[in-house]
Design a binder for these strands. Structure first.
Lengths: 117, 117
DNA sequence: AAGACATATTCTTCAATTGGAATATACGAT
DNA sequence: ATCGTATATTCCAATTGAAGAATATGTCTT
């Protein structure tokens, strides 16, 4: 999940993913459409590949890149858990009350964290 | 969208968002739960705030941070467009065919991109 | 008014990331 | 075998991002 987000958080990689949404493409095609140089595209594809977002199929000298569903589905499921936020009924008070209660322990915890470095 | 992704792509910020999902929290509470130092938490909150992911409510010396639905909803809608990927029927050939056709123009484009820097 | 408390900001490293240039690798065509 | 094409990799420079430490700001309590 974190790796998926980090991969997508770069504009050019995001664009690559967007392009691949419509279908697989060889590197050269992406180079043309992105206006980037070939090595950088390859590097971005490497990152996407490491994150499991794309997979390669070899076709002679061409490498055809394809989106892999899994990470995006995972992202989908993650953000789905936030649905309650915009689906109206959402109370935000519980945490505040909990916070009041934990006030006393704070000093102690903070100390422990001090030796932490 | 890009800003949302960049904000979420940092583990601590991601954690902050996760914590806020259950309800609003003051900074000190986040500090305790994350095991980070207060300034870093404030800085992360700043980034999240700039990305529109959280909003602040002032309560005396406390600042209560709350998740804002909008960016997450946007993310939800974005990833939703990729649903076709894991919903089976997905053809990946069209792009390849398109690619064949554009082959001829490639040299020209590549040249133009050369002066690009 | 003074001190404690909660939070934000600034400044300084330090590590990670990105683009650029050059080069390497591998395949296809001649 | 040689050359052209497609892609990956390496090395370097510049940038960016995050943590740490110190400090500033504002509010509450007494």
């Amino acid at each position: 999940m974190m790796e998926t987000l980090r991969a997508l958080a770069e504009p050019n990689r995001f664009q690559i993913v967007e392009l691949l949404r419509k279908g697989s493409r060889p590197v050269g095609d992406l180079v043309d459409r992105l206006g980037l140089r070939q090595p950088q595209v390859s590097k971005h594809l490497r990152v996407l590949s490491d994150a499991g977002l794309v997979e390669v199929r070899v076709d002679a000298q061409r490498r055809i890149y394809t989106l892999r569903p899994a990470p995006l589905q995972e992202l989908q499921e993650w953000v789905e858990r936030y649905r309650q936020l915009w689906e109206g009924n959402f109370q935000r008070l519980d945490a505040l009350l909990g916070q009041m209660k934990t006030q006393e322990k704070k000093r102690g915890r903070r100390k422990r964290q001090g030796d932490h470095r």
